[in-house]
Structures are given as C-alpha cells and as structure tokens.
C-alpha cells in the first residue's frame, strides 16, 4: 500500500527562557499513514500531538526531520504537498461573517483546476473551473449534510455544524490525506456516529488516508485501523485495532465465565488448559487466547453448569492507560 503520509524523525524544540536547552515537544517521531487507512493519534494533553500535526500541516517548522505527503516534502515542496491535503486543526474555524457556502466558494477557488478534475478527463478543456468548483462545493456540503443551511452565516452555526463544515472544507481538495484534530468535538451522539461513518466511508471509497487525533477513544476504536500513542514527545506504542478486537493483545482476550463452584472450575481450567483464572465472587476472570468453545467444552465435561461466557474486547482506553502509565 502506498503511503500518503510519511513522517521521518520529526523533532521540534522550542526555545526556553533561562534554559540552555530548549523544550523538546516532539522527539524523533516517525510513522506513516497508508492510503485508505484511518490512523488514530492519541496521547495525553501536552504529549506533542498538536505540535506534530502542525508540523505535518506546515504550520510549524520542524527543528529536525521531514514530512512527506504523497512523496512531496512539506518544507521543500509545499505547494505540491498541500495539493493532496485537507484538514481541520484544533478548531473548525471559518470566516464568521460569511455564509457556509461563501466560505467554501472562497476556499475552493484556491485549489488548482487539476485537483477538481483529472487533466486526462475529456471534459477538462470544456468545463470551466467555476463550474467544477460549484459542483465540488455542492458535493461536499451534501456529503456532510449542510446543504440546507448553506446560506446561513457561520457565526450562527452550532459547534457541531461548524465541525461538519470544517470537514466539508477539508474535503474540497479531494484529498489523499485528511488531518483531523478532534473531529467529534462538540457533536451529539448522533452527530458523532454520522461523522464516524462518513469518515470510514470516505476512507473505504476514496482511499483517503486519515490521521485523526482525539480523546474519544471509544470512537477511535470503532473508526480506526491503527492507533499511534504518543507521550512526552515520543511514540510509545502502536496497535492495530483488529488485534484489539480479536483479543490478541497481552496474551489474549479477557474472558468472564459464570459458573457454579467457581473455585473448582478455576482449578480444572488450570489443569486442563493452563489458564490462570481468578475467582471474583461468582465469576471467573481470565486472560487467554483459548477459544470460548474449548473452555465451555472442558467445563461441561468436568460436570460444571456454565451459565455464560463473555469474551471482552480489549478497550483502547486500557491500552492507552497501560502505555502512558496514566491513571495509576
């Protein structure tokens, strides 16, 4: 799979007053985002997330290292790199006195015609930039469900609508890479679901690679293919989401077994399947890679009444807290 974003040894040092060495906000960070892949970018506050995203977007200059978007360096070939990027950074800001439509009309005009339509297309010479722009603006506004409110001033939009307009704005350029900072911020549950499904659909349909930073870990778990965890300016962990849902993390999934005579059942499981199970009240808890069917069979053959076996997916939250050491 082709990488739409390649971050190589990115470092950012901010000068500090009274200190010889600066404050290292981002320290030798490298990762990549492939096309069609949604990558979550998580970390505690002040971990260096936003600084990294700003360097990727070209808002801040890296002290060292380089960022490549579709093979173009952001620092050295900015115009070509930014042809393929859309993003909402920190807050979905727009010109408040203009309508949503006017905002997008202005922003879309800053993209070259080739972005809107492939030059090899037979319509390329006949259709005007203006028509293409108008079509694109209509498309993205309908995509995020703001077409009916297009004439309203942005200052009258709710935070959720601003968030959606921000995403619409990011999609104007038919991007290959989307950079989203807290895209679900301020959205109601229905809005969050809508955005999550929209992003997933965009990634699958148009093969857009996405780097999504968020604190809503449960949402990220539902949406992402992969997460990168950053703390103190360094990448400390990287997990694939399918590993988590298959329970292939730290030696298996967490299983809760409700059974009569739990203590004896625990002894049986240890003897037959080498599972270390813990007795908590009427339940047994264990972390194992063994199939639930196998466990059930053993317990039933051992003469136990099995009331239920629940296989718990590993939550991203646990992985996060585990990796960052927060919350202890």
């Amino acid at each position: 799979m082709a990488a739409v974003l390649e971050v190589k040894n990115l470092t950012k040092v901010y000068p500090r007053k009274g200190h010889k060495d600066g404050l290292t906000a981002v320290n030798d960070v490298s990762f990549r985002v492939n096309e069609g892949e949604i990558v979550g970018f998580i970390g505690p506050n002040g971990a260096g997330k936003t600084t990294t995203i700003k360097m990727i977007a070209g808002l801040a200059r890296p002290t060292a290292g380089e960022v490549f978007i579709c093979g173009h360096s952001v620092t050295r070939d900015r115009v070509n790199a930014m042809k393929h990027v859309g993003g909402v950074i920190e807050t979905p800001d727009m010109y408040p006195d203009m309508s949503g439509l006017k905002n997008l009309n202005y922003l879309v005009s800053l993209h070259p015609k080739e972005t809107m339509l492939d030059p090899s297309d037979e319509r390329f010479s006949t259709v005007s930039k203006k028509e293409l722009d108008a079509q694109r603006v209509e498309d993205v506004l309908k995509m995020v469900g703001l077409w009916d409110r297009r004439g309203d001033q942005v200052r009258k939009y709710s935070l959720g609508m601003k968030q959606r307009l921000g995403i619409a704005q990011a999609l104007l350029s038919k991007p290959k890479l989307l950079i989203l900072d807290e895209p679900a911020n301020g959205l109601d549950p229905a809005g969050i679901k809508y955005i999550r499904e929209l992003l997933r659909r965009l990634a699958d349909t148009y093969k857009i690679g996405m780097l999504v930073s968020s604190h809503q870990l449960s949402e990220l778990q539902l949406m992402c293919d992969r997460v990168i965890i950053i703390n103190n300016g360094k990448i400390i962990a990287e997990r694939r989401m399918d590993e988590l849902s298959a329970g292939e993390y730290k030696g298996g999934a967490r299983i809760i077994i409700r059974v009569d005579r739990p203590a004896e059942a625990a002894a049986l499981l240890k003897e037959k399947l080498e599972i270390q199970a813990e007795v908590i009240g009427e339940e047994l808890r264990a972390t194992t890679s063994a199939e639930t069917a196998v466990i059930t069979k053993e317990l039933v053959l051992g003469g136990f009444n099995v009331y239920g076996i629940t296989r718990e997916e590993i939550r991203l939250e646990d992985v996060f807290i585990d990796a960052t050491g927060e919350g202890r």
Partner: peptide, 14 residues
Amino acid sequence: QNGTLKILLLKPIT
C-alpha cells in the same frame, strides 16, 4: 485571531 490562517496554510499556496 479567527483561526482561519490554519485553513489557508493548508492550501497549495506558499
């Protein structure tokens, strides 16, 4: 102050 500069800088312009 608007924050719109962040959007402009993501456009393919120097």
